[in-house]
Design a protein around this nucleic acid. Structure first.
Lengths: 150, 150
DNA sequence: CTTTAGTAGTTGCACATGCAACTAAAGCCT
DNA sequence: AGGCTTTAGTTGCATGTGCAACTACTAAAG
Protein backbone atom coordinates (compact mmCIF):
# COMPACT_ATOMS: atom_id res chain seq x y z
CA UNK A 1 0.00 0.00 0.00
CA UNK A 2 2.07 2.87 -1.26
CA UNK A 3 1.59 6.39 0.02
CA UNK A 4 0.37 7.78 -3.23
CA UNK A 5 0.80 11.47 -2.56
CA UNK A 6 3.59 12.62 -4.80
CA UNK A 7 6.41 14.12 -2.81
CA UNK A 8 4.99 17.11 -1.04
CA UNK A 9 7.86 19.32 -2.12
CA UNK A 10 7.41 18.46 -5.77
CA UNK A 11 3.67 19.00 -5.59
CA UNK A 12 4.25 22.39 -3.99
CA UNK A 13 6.65 23.28 -6.73
CA UNK A 14 3.99 22.55 -9.34
CA UNK A 15 1.33 24.51 -7.51
CA UNK A 16 3.56 27.47 -6.81
CA UNK A 17 4.64 27.61 -10.41
CA UNK A 18 1.06 27.54 -11.66
CA UNK A 19 -0.18 30.16 -9.23
CA UNK A 20 2.71 32.58 -9.51
CA UNK A 21 2.87 32.34 -13.28
CA UNK A 22 -0.85 32.98 -13.57
CA UNK A 23 -0.45 36.06 -11.39
CA UNK A 24 2.38 37.33 -13.59
CA UNK A 25 0.40 36.84 -16.76
CA UNK A 26 -2.53 38.61 -15.24
CA UNK A 27 -0.39 41.65 -14.54
CA UNK A 28 0.75 41.81 -18.13
CA UNK A 29 -2.73 41.35 -19.46
CA UNK A 30 -4.08 44.02 -17.13
CA UNK A 31 -1.52 46.40 -18.65
CA UNK A 32 -2.63 45.40 -22.17
CA UNK A 33 0.65 43.72 -22.89
CA UNK A 34 1.30 40.35 -24.51
CA UNK A 35 2.29 37.16 -22.72
CA UNK A 36 5.50 36.22 -21.00
CA UNK A 37 6.23 33.90 -23.88
CA UNK A 38 6.45 36.85 -26.23
CA UNK A 39 8.59 38.68 -23.73
CA UNK A 40 10.99 35.76 -23.66
CA UNK A 41 11.39 35.83 -27.41
CA UNK A 42 11.97 39.57 -27.49
CA UNK A 43 14.43 39.38 -24.66
CA UNK A 44 16.35 36.47 -26.15
CA UNK A 45 16.73 38.42 -29.37
CA UNK A 46 17.68 41.63 -27.63
CA UNK A 47 20.50 39.86 -25.83
CA UNK A 48 21.74 38.10 -28.95
CA UNK A 49 24.57 39.56 -31.01
CA UNK A 50 23.10 41.71 -33.76
CA UNK A 51 19.63 41.17 -32.29
CA UNK A 52 19.20 37.98 -34.29
CA UNK A 53 19.12 34.25 -33.63
CA UNK A 54 18.76 31.15 -35.73
CA UNK A 55 15.42 29.47 -35.26
CA UNK A 56 16.87 26.39 -33.65
CA UNK A 57 18.97 28.27 -31.10
CA UNK A 58 15.98 30.38 -30.23
CA UNK A 59 14.08 27.15 -29.61
CA UNK A 60 16.87 25.89 -27.41
CA UNK A 61 16.97 29.04 -25.32
CA UNK A 62 13.23 29.14 -24.87
CA UNK A 63 13.01 25.44 -24.07
CA UNK A 64 10.50 25.00 -26.86
CA UNK A 65 10.34 22.63 -29.78
CA UNK A 66 11.47 23.82 -33.20
CA UNK A 67 8.05 23.71 -34.75
CA UNK A 68 6.54 25.61 -31.89
CA UNK A 69 9.07 28.34 -32.40
CA UNK A 70 8.25 28.43 -36.10
CA UNK A 71 4.72 29.39 -35.23
CA UNK A 72 5.55 31.60 -32.30
CA UNK A 73 7.78 33.61 -34.63
CA UNK A 74 4.98 33.60 -37.22
CA UNK A 75 2.80 35.39 -34.71
CA UNK A 76 5.42 37.90 -33.63
CA UNK A 77 6.20 38.54 -37.26
CA UNK A 78 2.56 39.21 -38.03
CA UNK A 79 2.61 41.70 -35.17
CA UNK A 80 5.68 43.36 -36.66
CA UNK A 81 7.88 42.63 -33.65
CA UNK A 82 10.41 40.42 -35.38
CA UNK A 83 11.23 39.62 -38.98
CA UNK A 84 12.67 36.57 -40.63
CA UNK A 85 15.83 36.68 -42.72
CA UNK A 86 17.47 33.90 -44.66
CA UNK A 87 20.80 32.97 -43.15
CA UNK A 88 23.79 33.79 -45.33
CA UNK A 89 26.07 30.92 -44.50
CA UNK A 90 23.44 28.18 -44.68
CA UNK A 91 20.66 28.60 -47.17
CA UNK A 92 18.37 26.27 -45.23
CA UNK A 93 18.49 28.40 -42.15
CA UNK A 94 16.53 31.45 -41.06
CA UNK A 95 17.23 34.09 -38.44
CA UNK A 96 14.59 35.75 -36.35
CA UNK A 97 15.55 39.41 -36.14
CA UNK A 98 14.23 41.90 -33.62
CA UNK A 99 12.57 44.96 -35.16
CA UNK A 100 12.52 48.45 -33.70
CA UNK A 101 8.90 47.89 -32.79
CA UNK A 102 9.86 44.69 -31.02
CA UNK A 103 12.51 46.47 -28.98
CA UNK A 104 10.08 49.18 -28.08
CA UNK A 105 7.48 46.69 -26.93
CA UNK A 106 9.95 44.83 -24.77
CA UNK A 107 10.99 48.09 -23.20
CA UNK A 108 7.39 48.78 -22.33
CA UNK A 109 6.86 45.29 -20.97
CA UNK A 110 9.89 45.16 -18.75
CA UNK A 111 8.85 47.59 -16.02
CA UNK A 112 5.54 45.80 -15.63
CA UNK A 113 7.20 42.41 -15.56
CA UNK A 114 9.89 43.62 -13.18
CA UNK A 115 7.36 45.04 -10.77
CA UNK A 116 5.37 41.83 -10.90
CA UNK A 117 8.47 39.76 -10.16
CA UNK A 118 9.27 41.96 -7.21
CA UNK A 119 5.81 41.98 -5.76
CA UNK A 120 4.87 38.40 -6.44
CA UNK A 121 8.19 36.73 -5.93
CA UNK A 122 11.29 38.56 -4.70
CA UNK A 123 9.63 40.55 -2.01
CA UNK A 124 8.52 37.45 -0.18
CA UNK A 125 11.96 35.92 0.08
CA UNK A 126 15.10 37.06 1.86
CA UNK A 127 18.31 37.42 -0.08
CA UNK A 128 19.58 34.27 1.61
CA UNK A 129 16.50 32.33 0.62
CA UNK A 130 16.80 33.45 -2.97
CA UNK A 131 20.39 32.38 -3.03
CA UNK A 132 19.59 28.99 -1.54
CA UNK A 133 16.78 28.56 -4.02
CA UNK A 134 19.01 29.43 -6.95
CA UNK A 135 21.53 26.90 -5.78
CA UNK A 136 18.96 24.14 -5.61
CA UNK A 137 17.41 24.93 -8.96
CA UNK A 138 20.76 25.14 -10.68
CA UNK A 139 21.78 21.86 -9.16
CA UNK A 140 18.58 20.19 -10.34
CA UNK A 141 19.01 21.57 -13.84
CA UNK A 142 22.58 20.44 -14.00
CA UNK A 143 21.68 16.95 -12.87
CA UNK A 144 19.10 16.83 -15.64
CA UNK A 145 21.58 18.00 -18.23
CA UNK A 146 24.08 15.41 -17.11
CA UNK A 147 21.54 12.61 -17.36
CA UNK A 148 20.32 13.84 -20.72
CA UNK A 149 23.58 13.73 -22.57
CA UNK A 150 24.62 10.15 -21.91
CA UNK B 1 18.72 52.07 -18.43
CA UNK B 2 17.11 49.18 -16.59
CA UNK B 3 18.83 45.87 -16.25
CA UNK B 4 16.30 43.96 -18.25
CA UNK B 5 17.10 40.44 -17.13
CA UNK B 6 14.21 39.26 -15.05
CA UNK B 7 15.31 38.31 -11.59
CA UNK B 8 17.71 35.43 -12.01
CA UNK B 9 15.97 33.39 -9.35
CA UNK B 10 12.59 33.73 -10.99
CA UNK B 11 14.02 32.89 -14.39
CA UNK B 12 15.65 29.80 -12.92
CA UNK B 13 12.39 28.77 -11.40
CA UNK B 14 10.71 28.92 -14.80
CA UNK B 15 13.49 26.97 -16.49
CA UNK B 16 13.70 24.35 -13.80
CA UNK B 17 9.98 23.85 -13.88
CA UNK B 18 9.94 23.43 -17.63
CA UNK B 19 12.87 21.04 -17.73
CA UNK B 20 11.88 18.88 -14.78
CA UNK B 21 8.27 18.66 -15.82
CA UNK B 22 9.25 17.64 -19.34
CA UNK B 23 11.45 14.92 -17.88
CA UNK B 24 8.59 13.64 -15.74
CA UNK B 25 6.18 13.54 -18.66
CA UNK B 26 8.72 11.71 -20.72
CA UNK B 27 8.97 9.01 -18.09
CA UNK B 28 5.24 8.50 -18.11
CA UNK B 29 5.05 8.46 -21.87
CA UNK B 30 7.93 5.99 -22.08
CA UNK B 31 5.91 3.67 -19.85
CA UNK B 32 2.85 4.12 -22.11
CA UNK B 33 0.95 5.99 -19.45
CA UNK B 34 -1.08 9.17 -19.76
CA UNK B 35 -0.01 12.63 -18.69
CA UNK B 36 0.50 14.07 -15.25
CA UNK B 37 -2.66 16.06 -15.74
CA UNK B 38 -4.68 12.88 -15.87
CA UNK B 39 -2.84 11.58 -12.85
CA UNK B 40 -3.81 14.69 -10.93
CA UNK B 41 -7.48 14.18 -11.70
CA UNK B 42 -7.38 10.53 -10.70
CA UNK B 43 -5.52 11.30 -7.52
CA UNK B 44 -7.80 14.16 -6.54
CA UNK B 45 -10.78 11.85 -6.92
CA UNK B 46 -9.15 9.00 -5.07
CA UNK B 47 -8.52 11.21 -2.08
CA UNK B 48 -12.01 12.66 -2.10
CA UNK B 49 -14.74 11.23 0.11
CA UNK B 50 -16.66 8.63 -1.84
CA UNK B 51 -14.22 9.05 -4.75
CA UNK B 52 -16.25 11.88 -6.15
CA UNK B 53 -15.97 15.63 -6.52
CA UNK B 54 -18.10 18.40 -7.89
CA UNK B 55 -16.74 19.81 -11.10
CA UNK B 56 -15.95 23.18 -9.62
CA UNK B 57 -14.06 21.85 -6.63
CA UNK B 58 -12.10 19.62 -8.93
CA UNK B 59 -11.20 22.72 -10.93
CA UNK B 60 -10.13 24.50 -7.78
CA UNK B 61 -7.91 21.65 -6.66
CA UNK B 62 -6.26 21.28 -10.02
CA UNK B 63 -5.80 25.02 -10.47
CA UNK B 64 -7.66 24.86 -13.75
CA UNK B 65 -10.56 26.80 -15.12
CA UNK B 66 -14.04 25.31 -14.93
CA UNK B 67 -14.45 24.90 -18.65
CA UNK B 68 -11.09 23.26 -18.96
CA UNK B 69 -12.14 20.73 -16.38
CA UNK B 70 -15.35 20.08 -18.27
CA UNK B 71 -13.33 18.92 -21.22
CA UNK B 72 -10.63 17.19 -19.25
CA UNK B 73 -13.34 15.12 -17.59
CA UNK B 74 -14.90 14.54 -21.04
CA UNK B 75 -11.66 12.90 -22.10
CA UNK B 76 -11.25 10.81 -18.97
CA UNK B 77 -14.85 9.78 -19.25
CA UNK B 78 -14.36 8.68 -22.85
CA UNK B 79 -11.45 6.59 -21.61
CA UNK B 80 -13.67 5.03 -18.96
CA UNK B 81 -11.62 6.35 -16.07
CA UNK B 82 -14.27 8.54 -14.49
CA UNK B 83 -17.98 8.95 -14.93
CA UNK B 84 -20.29 11.87 -14.45
CA UNK B 85 -23.25 11.80 -12.10
CA UNK B 86 -25.86 14.44 -11.50
CA UNK B 87 -25.59 15.87 -8.00
CA UNK B 88 -28.54 15.05 -5.78
CA UNK B 89 -28.74 18.17 -3.69
CA UNK B 90 -28.30 20.62 -6.56
CA UNK B 91 -29.72 19.72 -9.89
CA UNK B 92 -27.37 22.06 -11.74
CA UNK B 93 -24.32 20.29 -10.44
CA UNK B 94 -22.40 17.25 -11.56
CA UNK B 95 -19.91 15.01 -9.80
CA UNK B 96 -16.94 13.39 -11.44
CA UNK B 97 -16.71 9.90 -9.99
CA UNK B 98 -13.67 7.65 -10.16
CA UNK B 99 -14.31 4.28 -11.81
CA UNK B 100 -12.57 1.01 -10.97
CA UNK B 101 -10.64 1.36 -14.19
CA UNK B 102 -9.56 4.83 -13.13
CA UNK B 103 -8.33 3.57 -9.77
CA UNK B 104 -6.44 0.78 -11.46
CA UNK B 105 -4.75 3.15 -13.86
CA UNK B 106 -3.68 5.50 -11.09
CA UNK B 107 -2.22 2.55 -9.23
CA UNK B 108 -0.18 1.66 -12.30
CA UNK B 109 0.96 5.24 -12.79
CA UNK B 110 2.04 5.94 -9.27
CA UNK B 111 5.18 3.78 -9.09
CA UNK B 112 6.44 5.29 -12.32
CA UNK B 113 5.68 8.80 -11.15
CA UNK B 114 7.15 8.15 -7.75
CA UNK B 115 10.38 6.85 -9.20
CA UNK B 116 10.58 9.81 -11.52
CA UNK B 117 10.09 12.24 -8.63
CA UNK B 118 12.82 10.51 -6.69
CA UNK B 119 15.30 10.37 -9.50
CA UNK B 120 14.63 13.73 -11.06
CA UNK B 121 13.90 15.75 -7.97
CA UNK B 122 14.20 14.39 -4.46
CA UNK B 123 17.48 12.61 -4.93
CA UNK B 124 19.27 15.82 -5.81
CA UNK B 125 18.27 17.67 -2.67
CA UNK B 126 19.04 17.06 0.97
CA UNK B 127 16.21 16.75 3.45
CA UNK B 128 17.11 20.19 4.77
CA UNK B 129 16.98 21.71 1.32
CA UNK B 130 13.62 20.17 0.63
CA UNK B 131 12.30 21.55 3.85
CA UNK B 132 13.64 25.01 3.13
CA UNK B 133 12.17 24.85 -0.34
CA UNK B 134 8.78 23.83 0.97
CA UNK B 135 8.86 26.71 3.39
CA UNK B 136 9.57 29.22 0.66
CA UNK B 137 6.98 27.87 -1.73
CA UNK B 138 4.31 27.76 0.92
CA UNK B 139 5.10 31.29 1.93
CA UNK B 140 4.86 32.49 -1.67
CA UNK B 141 1.57 30.72 -2.16
CA UNK B 142 0.16 32.15 1.00
CA UNK B 143 1.20 35.66 0.05
CA UNK B 144 -0.60 35.18 -3.24
CA UNK B 145 -3.73 33.91 -1.58
CA UNK B 146 -3.70 36.86 0.81
CA UNK B 147 -3.40 39.34 -2.04
CA UNK B 148 -6.03 37.56 -4.07
CA UNK B 149 -8.85 37.72 -1.57
CA UNK B 150 -8.87 41.44 -0.84
C1' DC C 1 30.46 13.45 -59.27
C1' DT C 2 26.56 11.05 -57.34
C1' DT C 3 24.39 8.59 -53.96
C1' DT C 4 23.18 8.51 -49.11
C1' DA C 5 22.54 10.38 -44.69
C1' DG C 6 21.71 14.21 -41.80
C1' DT C 7 20.09 18.99 -40.53
C1' DA C 8 17.02 23.45 -40.73
C1' DG C 9 12.82 24.73 -40.91
C1' DT C 10 7.82 24.41 -42.15
C1' DT C 11 3.18 22.39 -42.55
C1' DG C 12 -1.23 19.16 -42.20
C1' DC C 13 -3.92 17.21 -39.06
C1' DA C 14 -5.64 15.96 -34.67
C1' DC C 15 -6.14 17.51 -30.29
C1' DA C 16 -6.07 21.08 -26.31
C1' DT C 17 -7.07 25.78 -24.42
C1' DG C 18 -9.15 30.51 -23.55
C1' DC C 19 -12.89 33.42 -23.75
C1' DA C 20 -17.56 34.81 -24.20
C1' DA C 21 -22.03 33.33 -24.73
C1' DC C 22 -25.36 30.07 -23.41
C1' DT C 23 -28.78 26.77 -20.55
C1' DA C 24 -30.52 25.45 -16.37
C1' DA C 25 -31.22 25.68 -11.71
C1' DA C 26 -30.88 28.06 -7.15
C1' DG C 27 -31.34 32.05 -4.13
C1' DC C 28 -33.18 36.48 -3.01
C1' DC C 29 -36.31 40.31 -2.49
C1' DT C 30 -40.61 42.53 -2.41
C1' DA D 1 -46.03 34.20 -6.52
C1' DG D 2 -43.01 37.01 -9.93
C1' DG D 3 -38.93 38.90 -11.40
C1' DC D 4 -33.62 39.99 -10.75
C1' DT D 5 -29.18 38.15 -9.65
C1' DT D 6 -25.97 34.51 -8.99
C1' DT D 7 -23.98 29.97 -9.60
C1' DA D 8 -22.94 25.28 -12.03
C1' DG D 9 -21.69 23.60 -15.88
C1' DT D 10 -21.29 23.28 -21.02
C1' DT D 11 -20.36 24.77 -25.84
C1' DG D 12 -18.86 27.61 -30.32
C1' DC D 13 -15.22 29.70 -32.12
C1' DA D 14 -10.68 31.28 -32.61
C1' DT D 15 -6.21 30.25 -31.25
C1' DG D 16 -2.31 27.28 -29.64
C1' DT D 17 0.32 22.72 -29.40
C1' DG D 18 2.29 18.00 -30.62
C1' DC D 19 3.59 14.75 -33.81
C1' DA D 20 4.85 12.93 -38.19
C1' DA D 21 5.59 13.93 -42.75
C1' DC D 22 7.49 17.06 -45.92
C1' DT D 23 10.89 20.47 -48.64
C1' DA D 24 15.23 22.27 -49.20
C1' DC D 25 19.66 22.28 -48.43
C1' DT D 26 24.46 20.48 -46.62
C1' DA D 27 27.89 17.01 -45.63
C1' DA D 28 30.01 12.53 -45.93
C1' DA D 29 31.21 8.21 -48.37
C1' DG D 30 32.34 5.72 -52.18
Amino acid sequence: MPVPSPSRTWALMLSAHAVLLAAMEQRLKAADLPSLEWYDVLWALEQAPDHRLRMHSLAERLLLTRFNVTRLVDRLERAGLVSRQKAKDDRRGADAVLTAKGRALRARMWPVYRTAIDEIFNQHLTAGQRQALEGMLEHLLQARRASGEE
